[in-house]
Amino acid sequence: MRGLTPVAAITDAALIEESLADPERFASLFDRYADEIHRYATRRLGQENLSAADDVTAETFLAAFRKRSRYDLSRSDAAPWLYGIASNLIAKHRRTELRRLRALARVPSHDENPFEQRSIDRIDAQRLGPRLADALARLSSAERELLFLVTWAELSYEQAAQAFDIPVGTVRSRLSRIRAKIRNVLEDTR
């Protein structure tokens, strides 16, 4: 029977290589990562900006498809590459994200009536806390991108380095600076 067996596990790099001759093979990469990238974009831009997250996801794969011939085939895992592209696209929405973070920063962390908090963004606000939201809003766009990749997207430092095409040592030093910045804001407003 055709079509009933799962797709054999081949590496992302092999898929990308195959897609150079057979472009439709690239759809398999979409199948592997679309949910993950969409989840990440939605977390970043907020459930209330779902259409922006939808656009970022679609654009990420289109951009990846267009530049697949430049993909470094020695990297078997394409996740960092895709997250790197998604991050650049999310950064273009930084106004949306900043607006969101600033709005969250104004929401009191202890709501008097938590049971009436129905919408997901209100729950985010409660979870993120206004001080943390404020700290994030004060980071540079590049810093936020890196921070969220190693936290919310759970990329390793090595993967984050690949995503931004920077040495892993740079990732470490940048993250340590970011931590210090956040700590300062949290302590200042305590």
């Binding site: 679309a34 459930q47 985010d124 921070l147």
Partner: peptide, 23 residues
């Protein structure tokens, strides 16, 4: 600080299958 951010990671709705199919 990173734990704080991870703890604040929002739960989000799954990718709408129709929108996904269009993408």
């Amino acid at each position: 600080e990173f734990d704080l951010i991870n703890e604040a990671r929002p739960e989000v709705a799954p990718y709408d299958p129709g929108v996904k199919a269009l993408a």
